[in-house]
Structures are given as C-alpha cells and as structure tokens.
C-alpha cells in the first residue's frame, strides 16, 4: 500500500468525501476485475459480476467509517469483503442455476480491438478461466489477486493470512500447475 493510499484510506475513514471518492475511483477497477475473474461472463457479458462488484464497493463504503488501520493493508479489508460477496453470488447462482457456462459469444459491440483480435483474446481468456477452475481454491485466489487485481505478493498475503514468502512459493506452484494443465489442454484442443 502506498503512502498516499494509506493517507486516502485514513481520510476516507474519517468521512472525508473527497478522499472517499478518490479511494473509490482507485479501487473500483481492481474490485471489478476480481469479481469478473471469479464469476465470469454470463450470457456473454460481465453484467452479473459487475453487479456484485458494485455491491462490494457499497459494502466497502459502508464499512469504511468503521475501518481501523491495524497495520494490515487496506486491500486485505476490501478483498475479504469481495470474497464474501463473490461466494454469496456463487451460492445464489447455484441455487437458481442462472450462472450459464462461459462459452457464449459477447453480445455487445466493442469498439476497441478488431473483431478477430477480440475473438482470439476472448478465447484465450476463456481458456484460462477454464484452467483456473482446475486449481485449488487458494492457488486460484492467488492468481486472481496477483494478476486480475494486480496486488503485490505482500498484500495478497494480507488478504489470505499468509506470509509474502508463502505467497511467492504458492504462486510459483500455481503457475507451474497452469503450465502443466495448459500443455495438456492445448494439445488436446488446438486453437
């Protein structure tokens, strides 16, 4: 956590609305990616995941005034909230069976890259999330927090209650496992 983020957090916890807005702007992209990484596309869009991400943001805002800096990074606070909300959403999806499998085509126009490039990217992304599903929950969470969210190993340790060294060890193991799995599936299912 950078000094300025710590500063922002403490100001926001003291109900400074400017700091709250700035903190939200800074954290929201990571929270959205976290929820999308775990919940995937439904019907081709990240709508469900983004709804959950919004809930996480709101829960964070509500909990902020109660946040006390106890030496743990703020990300630990945020991504524990996020983990709970994602688990809730997954349980709800299991109950209602609304979480469709990921292999659906995006139904929204996207201006950014060309359609072909987009299709390749989406295909790779889908393949990776299938591989992630075969990792252990802890390894999957580490990959999500490190790559999807972009947290440093120290903060991932804070979220998961592990030392940074343990995170580094585990992330290497997760990567190695992904390489093994990718070797298998890529051989079986050519692109």
């Amino acid at each position: 956590m950078t000094a300025s983020e710590a500063e922002l957090v403490s100001r926001a916890a003291r109900s400074d609305p400017v700091a709250t807005a700035a903190l939200l702007a800074r954290l929201r992209p990571g929270i959205v990616r976290y929820c999308r990484a775990h919940l995937g596309r439904v019907g081709g869009a990240y709508t469900t995941a983004d709804d959950v991400a919004q809930e996480v943001c709101l829960a964070m805002l509500r909990a902020l005034p109660r946040f006390r800096d106890e030496g743990r990074p703020f990300s630990a606070f945020v991504y524990r909230i996020a983990a709970n909300k994602v688990a809730d959403a997954q349980r709800a999806a299991m109950r209602h069976l609304v979480l469709a499998p990921v292999e659906t085509v995006p139904d929204r126009a996207d201006a950014a890259p060309g359609p072909e490039q987009q299709a390749v990217t989406t295909d790779d992304a889908r393949r990776l999330s299938l591989l992630l599903g075969q990792l252990s929950p802890t390894h999957r969470e580490i990959v999500v927090l490190r790559v999807a969210v972009g947290l440093p190993a120290e903060e991932v340790g804070g979220v998961l209650g592990m030392s940074a060294a343990a995170v580094r060890m585990a992330q290497s193991r997760a990567l190695a496992q992904l390489r093994t799995l990718a070797g298998d599936t890529l051989d079986e299912v050519p692109a």
Partner: peptide
Amino acid sequence: DRVASLLAAWRADLDAEL
C-alpha cells in the same frame, strides 16, 4: 510463454469496457 500470454489475454478481457 504460452501461459503468460493466456494470463495476459485473461487480464485484458477482465478490463473490457471497464
């Protein structure tokens, strides 16, 4: 690095229309 490029594509996709 095949897995790295899968991870990069995944990460880019998560950012889509963010």
